[in-house]
Simulated scan of single mutants.
Amino acid sequence: MLFKTALLASTLALLSNAQSSVSNDPPTPSGSVKQHVIQVGDVSGALKFYPETVRASVGDMVQFQFYPQNHSLAQSSFDKPCEPLAQANGSTPFWSGFMPVSASSTRMPVFSIVVRDDRPMWFYCATGKHCQGGMAGVINPPASGDRTIAAYKSAASSVALTGVPTGAAGSGGSNSSTGTGTGSGSGSGSVPTTTPAPGAASELRVWKGWAVAVCGIVGLLVV
């Protein structure tokens, strides 16, 4: 009888720990860099960045992941949409170069930049007329006023010719590629493109805890 009581108490404690793990996310390592991910296009070939706007702090990293067919990333100004930003004060505007991706590819091109200040950084796809078709975005858009992503895209729609940067591909950032997933391109690296959603690991622990707890309870009932 004492053994059964002890086993039941142990099972209930394990069940309690499994339930509590749902809301307890792993701690953020000290000194780590926060990363924001922007999807460039999608598997259906949409001319769009997901998301189009991102707010990032100085020191954060923004990673652009390229989907089929062939997209690119170029920095511009709000006043001159679809035109590459000129180099000024020693700064280098970012330019990924063209990133052709086949639908059957198992690697995905990635271009990453580090946010150096809190000024708005407007960007567009320099492939064909993708910019005119609405493929544009901004990091740290103005908090107020009429300089919005909608206004940028509206002005871009009437641009006659898309400007292509003349600098080397990878300027102002770094090119790499991820592991198994949609996409293929230049660069190196090995990061899975299909990663568990936030909390997936803790959910797995919960299910394992539940399974062990249920087995313990069943064992008590049949003895």
Rank of each mutant, 00 (worst) to 15 (best):
M1E: 12
L2R: 14
F3C: 07
K4I: 12
T5S: 13
T5M: 14
A9T: 11
A9F: 14
A13R: 04
A13M: 10
L15Y: 00
S20Q: 15
S21F: 00
V22E: 00
P26D: 04
P26T: 00
P29T: 04
K34N: 10
Q39C: 05
V40F: 02
D42H: 06
D42R: 09
K48W: 09
K48G: 01
F49H: 13
F49W: 14
Y50F: 10
P51E: 03
E52W: 00
T53E: 15
T53S: 15
G59T: 05
G59N: 08
Q65P: 00
F66H: 10
N70Y: 05
S72I: 01
A74G: 08
A74P: 07
F78G: 01
F78Y: 15
D79L: 06
K80G: 03
C82W: 08
P84L: 12
Q87K: 12
Q87Y: 01
G90Y: 02
P93E: 03
P93F: 09
P93N: 02
F94I: 07
S96A: 07
F98L: 10
M99L: 03
P100D: 04
P100V: 05
V101L: 06
V101Y: 05
S102L: 06
A103F: 02
S104G: 05
R107K: 12
P109F: 06
P109Y: 04
S112F: 03
S112L: 04
V114T: 13
V114S: 08
V115K: 07
D117R: 03
D117A: 11
R119M: 13
M121S: 09
W122M: 07
F123A: 08
Y124F: 15
G128Y: 07
G128T: 08
K129E: 14
H130N: 14
Q132S: 06
G133K: 14
V138A: 07
N140M: 08
P141A: 12
P141F: 12
G145E: 07
R147P: 01
T148M: 07
A150V: 11
S154D: 12
A155T: 11
A156M: 12
S158V: 11
S158P: 00
V159M: 00
V159G: 00
A160V: 10
G163V: 03
P165K: 01
G170R: 03
G173M: 08
S174D: 02
T180E: 11
G181M: 09
T182C: 09
S184C: 07
G185D: 11
G185Y: 03
G185A: 10
S188T: 15
G189I: 09
G189W: 10
V191N: 15
V191F: 15
V191E: 14
T194D: 08
T194M: 14
T195V: 15
P196T: 05
P196I: 10
A197H: 13
A200P: 11
L204D: 09
A213M: 09
V214K: 13
V214W: 14
C215F: 08
G216M: 04
G216R: 04
G219Q: 09
L220V: 02
